[in-house]
């Protein structure tokens, strides 16, 4: 990465956004040796909405962490927008996350006793954005997820669905190339889940945002355009989904 502010390579439509090549991730040695991912190949194009499913322990979360540059593969190649990022150190990966990746978690992971606006501002602070611009962007992001007027609310004053919207706004504020959602509806009831999914689908369709979502609910996975299934650390299936049909 020459400079964090320029994408890893020119946005050549031919270059896939994410390319995993023979990615293996193992932990421990000897008796305690566990292979969480084994020789996984996966390619995701810009603008896709991919759902990842699989039973627990199948390696889907490990794969998510590696795609999200929170973790490093033991071996294999990871090309992000055509640039090898598997060997980056912790701080380089932090910069990659800061500028190109947005995260949404099952548990929302908002800062407690911190207003919605300030939560959304957080990634922008690390980008070194001046305060006025930061606030304007955070407001816009909150408005985008339908939370205009709730800027000063604490997470504790918001419902689960609203909290997850704040989390999505936080991910959107830094204008990432990919949105990584780890069971975004896992803590929500059916109606709120549906609303969150509608928001994600809309972001994907109207803004071309690439979304990768881990879920264990088939209803939710049905909103995606492509379904990838993991089993025992390997890719079990990879099929296109006809959106809205399930």
């Amino acid at each position: 990465m020459a400079s964090p502010d320029t994408p890893p390579s020119p946005d050549n439509p031919a270059t896939p956004l994410i390319q995993l090549r023979a990615i293996t991730r193992s932990y421990g040695t000897g008796e305690a040796f566990v292979c969480a991912l084994e020789a996984v190949d996966l390619t995701i194009q810009q603008g896709e909405f991919v759902a990842i499913m699989g039973p627990s322990g199948s390696g889907k979360s490990t794969a998510m962490n590696i795609i999200g540059c929170l973790d490093r593969p033991t071996s294999g190649q990871y090309l992000f927008n055509g640039v090898e990022v598997a060997g980056l150190n912790q701080d380089q990966r932090a910069l990659l996350r800061r500028h190109y990746l947005g995260f949404v978690f099952q548990g929302f992971n908002l800062l407690a006793r911190t207003s919605a606006l300030e939560n959304v501002e957080l990634p922008l602070i690390y980008k070194g954005m001046p305060r006025a611009e930061r606030q304007a962007r955070a407001r816009a992001a909150l408005a985008r997820v339908g939370l205009a007027g709730r800027e000063t609310h604490d997470p504790s004053q918001l419902s689960g669905g609203q909290q997850q919207r704040v989390a999505i706004a936080r991910a959107l504020a830094s204008q990432p190339m990919v949105l990584l959602a780890d069971e975004p509806t896992g803590n929500l009831d059916t109606q709120r889940s549906e609303e969150i999914m509608q928001l994600l689908v809309e972001l994907n369709r109207t803004e071309g945002l690439t979304i990768i979502m881990v879920t264990h609910e088939e209803d939710m996975a049905a909103h995606a355009g492509r379904l990838v299934t993991f089993r025992d650390g390997r890719l079990a299936s990879d099929v296109a989904v006809q959106a809205g049909v399930s």
């Binding site: 999200g68 701080d91 800062l111 407690a112 990634p123 690390y126 980008k127």
Partner: peptide, 16 residues
């Protein structure tokens, strides 16, 4: 710890 995790996830460097 969780707050630190969130900060790291959104792109905070270790020294920050």
């Amino acid at each position: 710890t969780r707050e630190i995790g969130i900060r790291l996830a959104v792109g905070a460097e270790a020294r920050q």
